[in-house]
Computed example of a mutant assay.
Amino acid sequence: MNERVAFRQMKDGTADEYLLLRRLEEPFLKRTADRLLSELRRQQNETLEGYRITRYEHALQAATRAMREDAGDDWVVAALFHDIADGIAPQNHDRAAAEILRPFVSAEVCWVVEQHGLLQTYYYGHHYGWDRHARERFREHPYYQLAVDFCEKWDQASFDDEYVSESLQTFEPIVRRVFARPTYGD
């Protein structure tokens, strides 16, 4: 039989029960990379309505561009997963993706993922009557130029149905390396 706690409300849990839960959670935490890769694979058939490619293909293109520039593991993983939450949180997918990545990537990479949605409006916002220069409010931020470069070189450029990307298998060792290391703050 599966081990489980006796409490029905968290406030009633004992120290031993919480130690049990921590022990049982460890294998789950170690499978974070597997869950993210699985979610990305699921997006192979999930189109970006009106675009020429799927969410999956966009992720592979962005990550391929980052990898081909020798950007480093954190940046490659960020490029691969920067839109991972787009299907479930389209209005705040950037912040949702940043929260998923936050324990595993550097602060600068996390900030770029968190802000890429706003910075990306530079390319299309004026077509909707929005301020395409809204990103300028971050101009003095130390990571601003990194975010501008991320959007320019890897994100906005990765909607090309003729671009030849690396396969997801190419990125799996990088993903596993990033998600296996100690988390920031541990």
Rank of each mutant, 00 (worst) to 15 (best):
E57M: 12
D86H: 03
A79G: 04
W111Q: 04
F81H: 00
H116Y: 00
F138P: 01
Q120Y: 04
T121W: 00
A107R: 13
Q120N: 15
T121F: 02
V112W: 01
H141S: 05
A147E: 11
H93F: 08
Q145G: 00
L119E: 05
E99H: 04
R139C: 13
V76D: 03
V109L: 08
G117N: 02
E136Q: 13
D131V: 11
G125Q: 05
Q61T: 03
A147K: 02
H58Q: 02
D74A: 07
F104V: 13
D94L: 12
Q145V: 13
L101F: 10
S106A: 13
W130T: 09
R102P: 01
I100R: 13
I88N: 10
A97H: 00
H133N: 14
D94S: 14
Q120D: 14
Q145E: 15
T64E: 07
Y144G: 01
R132C: 14
A147N: 08
D74C: 07
A85G: 05
Q91I: 14
V112Q: 02
I84N: 02
R139D: 13
E99T: 09
V148I: 15
V148K: 09
Y128I: 10
Y143C: 14
C110N: 12
S106Y: 02
H82W: 01
G117Q: 00
A96Y: 10
R55F: 14
Y123N: 04
V76E: 03
Y143H: 15
R137W: 03
A59C: 05
L146R: 10
Q91Y: 08
A66C: 11
P142I: 11
W111S: 10
Y128S: 07
A71Y: 02
L60V: 06
H133A: 13
F81Y: 06
W130S: 08
W111F: 11
A107W: 07
M67E: 15
G125S: 04
Y123W: 05
Y56K: 08
Q61K: 07
R132E: 15
C110L: 05
V77C: 08
A62H: 00
Q91N: 12
Q115T: 15
Q120L: 13
L118D: 06
E136L: 15
A66V: 10
L146G: 04
Q120C: 12
S106P: 01
L119R: 03
E136Y: 06
I100E: 08
W130G: 02
A78I: 10
R135Y: 06
A147Q: 07
Y123E: 01
D74N: 10
P103E: 12
L60R: 01
D74S: 09
A62E: 03
E114Y: 04
E136K: 10
R102V: 08
G117T: 09
R132A: 15
N92Y: 15
Y123T: 09
H126D: 05
L118A: 11
L101Y: 10
A89Q: 14
D74F: 09
Q61I: 08
G125N: 02
G72H: 05
V77G: 00
L118V: 13
T121D: 09
G125T: 07
A63K: 00
V77Y: 01
A134D: 12
D73E: 14
E69A: 12
Y124S: 05
H116T: 04
A66F: 04
A97I: 05
A107F: 10
R137I: 15
T121G: 03
R132M: 13
L101R: 09
V105P: 00
C110S: 10
D83I: 05
Y56G: 09
H82E: 07
V112M: 08
V113E: 09
R139H: 13
Y123S: 03
A78L: 04
Y124C: 01
